[in-house]
């Protein structure tokens, strides 16, 4: 795979993560209460961490990347998208986060299906895996704190 292609993919993923940081920053401004801002700030911090990971990947060769996949338990598949609002609660914020990660994961899976190039495939697989891990993290929080009785 030409280096430019790899670099372009990582740049694309970076852009998405930066957009996510921006998204949560805007949500923090919309949020009305300290408890919302605290959680949004934490999620934003995680997205900033993802940006750093991708920036580090840019300096590595595509061969060095590691693919990690987690099974999709579809815990958020049937949840209805929550809308950013000043009175959103813990549940709403977690649904927003899960759905965002879900969409990113679906996008990389789609791109993965559209290419035959093994190195490109590996890069998309890695990115899809990362997004599914993030989604899983929020799903676990949702399971533990939002629906402990279910």
């Amino acid at each position: 795979m030409p280096d430019t292609q790899y670099s372009e993919i990582i740049d694309f993923a970076l852009k998405r993560e930066k957009e996510a940081v921006q998204f949560y920053t805007e949500l923090e401004h919309i949020a009305q209460f300290a408890s919302q801002k605290e959680l949004l700030g934490e999620i934003k911090g995680m997205e900033q961490g993802h940006v750093k990971i991708l920036e580090n990947l840019k300096t590595k060769s595509p061969e060095a990347i590691r693919v990690e996949r987690v099974p999709n338990f579809m815990a958020s598949t049937y949840l209805v998208e929550a809308q950013p609002a000043k009175d959103m609660n813990y549940q709403d914020i977690l649904i927003i986060a899960m759905k965002r990660e879900d969409r990113s994961h679906a996008l990389y899976e789609e791109l993965l299906q559209q290419t035959e190039n093994p190195e490109l495939r590996k890069t998309f697989e890695m990115l899809a895996g990362e997004e599914s891990k993030h989604k899983r993290f929020f799903e676990d929080l949702y399971d533990k704190y939002v629906q402990p009785d279910n």
Binding site: F33, K37, Y145, D149
Partner: peptide
């Protein structure tokens, strides 16, 4: 009846 959350809206920022 799956769970309940806190309401901390009364705490000023």
């Amino acid at each position: 009846a799956i769970g309940q959350g806190s309401s901390l809206d009364f705490i000023p920022e």
